[in-house]
Amino acid sequence: MSTRYAALLRGINVGGHRKVPMAELRSVIAELGHRDVVTHLQSGNAAFTVEDAEGEAVRRALEAAIERRFGFAVDCVVRNADYLRAVVAGCPFPADALEAKQLHVTYFSGPVAPERFDGIDPAAFAPEEFRIGDRALYLYAPEGLGRSKLADALARPTVTRGLVATTRNWNTVTKLVELTSP
């Protein structure tokens, strides 16, 4: 049985560091035996079809292949099409009424316990807001991610310790759904 996945690479092609050209990323993924490989933007988003493998095995193989090809480790979050659609459907904010730069999703490598956020006082960051989903966090940042003080607080080690976390704006979130749809 084939499954459509998206891989979200963390921390590549930022400021000229950890360069992973998308054509080479597509090649790496295809060499793993996956098909229908497409990439989106230069920030490390890929969609592809996998035969008979679950997401965690796909992630481990992809991270190892990237390190072999490029000489440095890259953390990846791999999610299937159903999960990506559920993230969009479960958005607690009025996505249709917001600009894409105002709404972001942080994808985590595993479940995120609510107590990780106990040290964050939501009122101190208003009008910015966040909501916890299933291995995802929704962030409303009306001035954009680059100006968000709440985004900085949410990236603290007390929140992310032991997890891979990578954030995408709403345009990319919905594009990943499109790229993984049959």
Rank of each mutant, 00 (worst) to 15 (best):
S148N: 03
L179F: 02
L137K: 01
Y140M: 09
K19N: 10
H17L: 07
P157C: 00
Y140I: 08
F108H: 11
S2M: 12
G162Y: 07
V88A: 12
L139T: 07
V28H: 04
N171S: 13
P94D: 14
G16C: 10
G55T: 09
T180R: 06
F72A: 08
A153H: 05
L98S: 08
L41I: 15
V28D: 03
R26H: 03
A81S: 15
V112I: 13
T158F: 13
V20I: 07
D134H: 12
E63L: 01
R68T: 11
S27Q: 14
F72C: 11
G146M: 08
P142M: 08
D96W: 01
V164I: 15
A30L: 04
Y5C: 02
G133D: 02
L150P: 08
A153K: 06
R135Y: 03
S43H: 02
D75Q: 12
A81N: 03
E56L: 13
A136L: 02
H104R: 10
G162T: 11
G119H: 15
D118A: 15
T49H: 08
I66H: 03
V77G: 01
V112G: 01
N13F: 06
P114S: 07
L98E: 11
P92F: 07
Y140T: 03
T3V: 15
T49C: 12
L8K: 01
V74E: 05
A126E: 12
F108Y: 14
Q102Y: 07
G33N: 09
H17F: 03
D96K: 13
S148Y: 03
E67S: 02
T3Y: 10
M22R: 05
K19S: 11
T172I: 07
A151F: 13
E31S: 10
L145T: 03
V88Y: 05
F125V: 01
F117D: 10
D75M: 00
K175Y: 01
A151M: 10
T180L: 07
L179G: 02
N80F: 00
